[in-house]
Amino acid sequence: MKLYNYFRSSASFRVRIAFELKGLPYEYLPVHLVKGEHRQEAYTAVSASQLVPTLETDAGELLSQSMAIIEYLDETHPEPALLPRDALGRARVRALAQLIACEIHPLNNLRVLKYLTRELKVDEATKNTWYRHWVRDGLEKLEQELARLPAGTYCYGDTPTLADCCLVPQIFNGKRFEVDFGGLTRTMAAFDACMRHPAFQKAQPSNCPDNEA
Protein backbone atom coordinates (compact mmCIF):
# COMPACT_ATOMS: atom_id res chain seq x y z
CA MET A 1 0.00 0.00 0.00
CA LYS A 2 1.03 3.59 -0.58
CA LEU A 3 0.23 6.52 1.69
CA TYR A 4 0.37 10.08 0.38
CA ASN A 5 0.85 12.30 3.39
CA TYR A 6 2.60 15.26 4.97
CA PHE A 7 4.63 14.84 8.14
CA ARG A 8 2.87 17.66 9.99
CA SER A 9 -0.67 16.80 8.86
CA SER A 10 -2.62 15.52 11.84
CA ALA A 11 -4.98 13.60 9.53
CA SER A 12 -1.97 11.84 7.99
CA PHE A 13 -0.55 11.23 11.47
CA ARG A 14 -3.76 9.40 12.45
CA VAL A 15 -3.37 6.98 9.57
CA ARG A 16 0.33 6.39 10.24
CA ILE A 17 -0.57 5.45 13.82
CA ALA A 18 -3.16 2.95 12.56
CA PHE A 19 -0.59 1.40 10.20
CA GLU A 20 1.92 1.05 13.04
CA LEU A 21 -0.62 -0.36 15.49
CA LYS A 22 -1.49 -3.04 12.96
CA GLY A 23 2.10 -3.66 11.94
CA LEU A 24 1.34 -3.04 8.27
CA PRO A 25 4.06 -1.93 5.84
CA TYR A 26 3.41 0.93 3.44
CA GLU A 27 5.25 3.19 1.03
CA TYR A 28 5.53 6.76 2.31
CA LEU A 29 4.86 9.34 -0.42
CA PRO A 30 5.30 12.93 0.84
CA VAL A 31 3.09 15.79 -0.33
CA HIS A 32 4.37 19.14 0.96
CA LEU A 33 1.34 21.24 1.88
CA VAL A 34 3.20 24.46 2.67
CA LYS A 35 4.87 24.35 -0.76
CA GLY A 36 1.50 23.75 -2.40
CA GLU A 37 2.30 20.32 -3.80
CA HIS A 38 -1.25 19.19 -3.02
CA ARG A 39 -2.54 21.64 -5.66
CA GLN A 40 -0.20 20.49 -8.40
CA GLU A 41 -1.42 18.31 -11.26
CA ALA A 42 0.51 15.25 -10.13
CA TYR A 43 -1.39 15.11 -6.86
CA THR A 44 -4.78 16.33 -8.07
CA ALA A 45 -4.75 13.25 -10.29
CA VAL A 46 -4.59 11.24 -7.07
CA SER A 47 -6.86 13.36 -4.85
CA ALA A 48 -9.74 15.36 -6.32
CA SER A 49 -10.13 17.17 -2.98
CA GLN A 50 -6.40 18.04 -2.92
CA LEU A 51 -6.19 16.88 0.69
CA VAL A 52 -3.94 14.46 2.54
CA PRO A 53 -3.85 11.66 3.33
CA THR A 54 -4.70 9.46 0.37
CA LEU A 55 -4.27 5.71 0.52
CA GLU A 56 -3.55 3.66 -2.58
CA THR A 57 -4.45 0.04 -1.90
CA ASP A 58 -2.56 -2.95 -3.24
CA ALA A 59 -5.26 -3.18 -5.91
CA GLY A 60 -4.62 0.42 -6.97
CA GLU A 61 -7.82 1.84 -5.47
CA LEU A 62 -7.58 5.37 -4.04
CA LEU A 63 -9.17 6.20 -0.70
CA SER A 64 -9.40 9.65 0.91
CA GLN A 65 -10.29 10.96 4.38
CA SER A 66 -8.31 9.66 7.34
CA MET A 67 -11.26 8.27 9.29
CA ALA A 68 -12.48 6.26 6.31
CA ILE A 69 -8.96 5.00 5.62
CA ILE A 70 -8.48 3.87 9.22
CA GLU A 71 -11.79 2.02 9.23
CA TYR A 72 -10.85 0.41 5.91
CA LEU A 73 -7.60 -0.81 7.47
CA ASP A 74 -9.51 -2.06 10.50
CA GLU A 75 -11.97 -4.01 8.37
CA THR A 76 -9.37 -5.50 6.03
CA HIS A 77 -6.82 -6.22 8.77
CA PRO A 78 -8.98 -6.83 11.88
CA GLU A 79 -6.22 -7.45 14.43
CA PRO A 80 -5.54 -5.63 16.61
CA ALA A 81 -8.98 -4.05 16.43
CA LEU A 82 -9.23 -0.26 16.59
CA LEU A 83 -12.95 -0.36 17.33
CA PRO A 84 -14.65 -2.40 20.07
CA ARG A 85 -16.54 -5.57 19.16
CA ASP A 86 -19.86 -4.37 20.56
CA ALA A 87 -22.07 -1.81 18.78
CA LEU A 88 -22.32 0.50 21.80
CA GLY A 89 -18.57 0.51 22.28
CA ARG A 90 -17.98 1.25 18.59
CA ALA A 91 -20.42 4.15 18.73
CA ARG A 92 -18.72 5.60 21.80
CA VAL A 93 -15.23 5.36 20.29
CA ARG A 94 -16.43 6.90 17.03
CA ALA A 95 -18.03 9.74 18.99
CA LEU A 96 -14.76 10.49 20.80
CA ALA A 97 -12.81 10.33 17.55
CA GLN A 98 -15.27 12.56 15.72
CA LEU A 99 -15.26 15.12 18.53
CA ILE A 100 -11.58 15.60 17.74
CA ALA A 101 -11.61 15.07 13.97
CA CYS A 102 -14.82 16.96 13.20
CA GLU A 103 -15.16 19.54 15.97
CA ILE A 104 -11.58 20.53 16.88
CA HIS A 105 -9.32 19.77 13.95
CA PRO A 106 -11.15 21.66 11.13
CA LEU A 107 -10.87 24.95 13.00
CA ASN A 108 -7.08 24.71 13.26
CA ASN A 109 -6.44 23.20 9.85
CA LEU A 110 -3.61 24.81 7.85
CA ARG A 111 -5.91 26.14 5.11
CA VAL A 112 -8.22 27.71 7.71
CA LEU A 113 -5.31 29.42 9.45
CA LYS A 114 -3.99 30.67 6.11
CA TYR A 115 -7.40 32.11 5.26
CA LEU A 116 -7.41 34.01 8.54
CA THR A 117 -4.06 35.64 7.81
CA ARG A 118 -4.14 36.04 4.02
CA GLU A 119 -7.78 36.88 3.34
CA LEU A 120 -9.01 38.34 6.62
CA LYS A 121 -5.66 39.98 7.44
CA VAL A 122 -5.61 38.62 10.98
CA ASP A 123 -2.22 39.14 12.62
CA GLU A 124 -0.14 36.23 13.87
CA ALA A 125 -0.90 36.78 17.57
CA THR A 126 -4.66 36.91 16.95
CA LYS A 127 -4.50 33.81 14.77
CA ASN A 128 -2.69 31.92 17.50
CA THR A 129 -5.25 33.07 20.07
CA TRP A 130 -8.00 31.73 17.78
CA TYR A 131 -6.15 28.44 17.51
CA ARG A 132 -5.59 28.02 21.24
CA HIS A 133 -9.20 28.93 22.05
CA TRP A 134 -10.78 26.32 19.81
CA VAL A 135 -8.34 23.54 20.68
CA ARG A 136 -8.75 24.16 24.39
CA ASP A 137 -12.54 24.42 24.07
CA GLY A 138 -12.72 21.13 22.20
CA LEU A 139 -10.39 19.31 24.56
CA GLU A 140 -12.42 20.46 27.54
CA LYS A 141 -15.47 18.86 25.93
CA LEU A 142 -13.48 15.70 25.26
CA GLU A 143 -12.40 15.62 28.91
CA GLN A 144 -16.04 15.82 29.98
CA GLU A 145 -16.92 12.91 27.71
CA LEU A 146 -14.02 10.82 28.99
CA ALA A 147 -15.06 11.52 32.59
CA ARG A 148 -18.36 9.73 31.90
CA LEU A 149 -16.61 6.55 30.80
CA PRO A 150 -15.07 3.84 33.00
CA ALA A 151 -11.41 4.50 33.77
CA GLY A 152 -8.97 2.94 31.33
CA THR A 153 -5.40 3.26 30.11
CA TYR A 154 -6.42 4.90 26.83
CA CYS A 155 -9.39 6.98 25.72
CA TYR A 156 -11.62 3.92 25.79
CA GLY A 157 -10.45 0.90 27.70
CA ASP A 158 -7.00 -0.59 27.97
CA THR A 159 -6.07 -0.92 24.29
CA PRO A 160 -5.59 1.86 21.72
CA THR A 161 -8.57 2.70 19.54
CA LEU A 162 -9.56 5.03 16.74
CA ALA A 163 -10.06 7.72 19.40
CA ASP A 164 -6.39 7.56 20.40
CA CYS A 165 -5.33 7.72 16.75
CA CYS A 166 -7.11 11.09 16.63
CA LEU A 167 -6.09 12.36 20.06
CA VAL A 168 -2.31 12.15 19.73
CA PRO A 169 -1.95 14.29 16.57
CA GLN A 170 -4.25 16.93 18.06
CA ILE A 171 -2.15 17.16 21.21
CA PHE A 172 1.02 17.37 19.11
CA ASN A 173 -0.46 20.31 17.21
CA GLY A 174 -1.65 21.94 20.41
CA LYS A 175 1.84 21.77 21.89
CA ARG A 176 3.25 23.57 18.85
CA PHE A 177 0.89 26.47 19.58
CA GLU A 178 1.33 26.36 23.36
CA VAL A 179 -2.22 25.35 24.20
CA ASP A 180 -2.95 25.08 27.92
CA PHE A 181 -3.55 21.42 28.82
CA GLY A 182 -4.03 22.06 32.53
CA GLY A 183 -6.89 20.20 34.19
CA LEU A 184 -7.35 17.76 31.29
CA THR A 185 -6.57 14.79 33.52
CA ARG A 186 -8.12 11.90 31.57
CA THR A 187 -7.16 13.37 28.21
CA MET A 188 -3.50 13.80 29.02
CA ALA A 189 -3.30 10.45 30.83
CA ALA A 190 -4.48 8.79 27.62
CA PHE A 191 -1.98 10.82 25.59
CA ASP A 192 0.88 9.87 27.91
CA ALA A 193 -0.07 6.19 27.67
CA CYS A 194 -0.09 6.44 23.89
CA MET A 195 3.34 8.00 23.83
CA ARG A 196 4.73 5.04 25.78
CA HIS A 197 3.45 2.73 23.03
CA PRO A 198 5.98 1.91 20.26
CA ALA A 199 3.43 2.36 17.46
CA PHE A 200 2.71 5.96 18.43
CA GLN A 201 6.42 6.65 18.77
CA LYS A 202 7.19 5.29 15.28
CA ALA A 203 4.37 7.25 13.64
CA GLN A 204 5.24 10.69 15.00
CA PRO A 205 6.37 13.49 12.65
CA SER A 206 10.01 13.41 13.76
CA ASN A 207 10.31 9.90 12.29
CA CYS A 208 8.88 10.83 8.88
CA PRO A 209 11.26 11.02 5.89
CA ASP A 210 9.96 14.49 4.99
CA ASN A 211 10.29 15.83 8.54
CA GLU A 212 11.67 19.36 8.81
CA ALA A 213 13.23 19.80 12.23
Rank of each mutant, 00 (worst) to 15 (best):
G60V: 04
E140T: 15
H32W: 07
A203M: 07
V122K: 03
D123E: 12
Y131M: 13
C165L: 10
L107W: 02
A151K: 12
E75P: 05
E75I: 00
P78C: 04
L62N: 01
P150F: 02
A87L: 14
L110K: 11
R111P: 01
C194E: 12
L113N: 13
C166E: 09
P169T: 05
P80I: 14
R176S: 02
A11K: 00
D164A: 08
Y131P: 04
G152F: 03
T159P: 00
T159C: 12
E20M: 07
V34D: 13
V34E: 07
C166T: 11
F177C: 00
A199R: 03
G174E: 08
E178P: 00
P106H: 01
P150R: 05
F191Y: 15
T126G: 00
C166Y: 00
C155S: 14
V15Y: 03
W134H: 13
G36E: 09
L142R: 05
Y6M: 00
V122F: 10
R14K: 12
P30Y: 03
E41L: 10
D86G: 11
L24R: 04
F172I: 03
L62Y: 12
M188P: 12
N108A: 01
L55N: 02
L167H: 10
V112P: 09
K22L: 12
R16Q: 10
L120Q: 14
K202P: 03
G157Y: 00
I69G: 04
F181W: 12
K175N: 11
R136A: 15
S206K: 11
V52Y: 04
M1E: 06
E124N: 05
A68P: 03
P25Y: 09
Q40G: 05
D123M: 10
A11M: 05
N128P: 05
Y131K: 11
A81P: 09
A48Q: 07
